[in-house]
Amino acid sequence: MTRILVLIVGLAIIGFIIWWFFGNHEVAETTATVSDNNQSVDVEVKGGYSPEVITLKKGVPAVLNFTRKDASSCLDRVVFSDFGINEELPQNEQETIKIDTSKAGEFQWACGMDMFHGKLIIK
């Protein structure tokens, strides 16, 4: 009897994992506000990036302020492969990253191990 119960609970957990990680869930998105011909977005790094999708206006100088609140060494660097940026993110310090907004397009960013991803849309 116990074993049947354990089996049911186990299968239920598997179901939950599939739904939780593979199901369609909303991600945090932000569009930068432009002021004085500058735009900036604060990104919190904690178990991932929030927001995960950032929209910037083309041609306006932009900065992203990353603050890593997570102790994981997984997230200790942020890499924008299209811009040649590979910055260290010291824990609990704001790290400003300048983004060249001269080209429109979608650009991925990732952690140093390429496990967590975020997306930058310039238009």
Binding site: W20, V27, D70, C74, M115
Partner: peptide, 19 residues
Amino acid sequence: RPFMQSAWSSFQKHHSNMD
């Protein structure tokens, strides 16, 4: 503890990692 914290905050965002 940092492993747990990181795992929990990723979990909340529907992510998972080595932690």
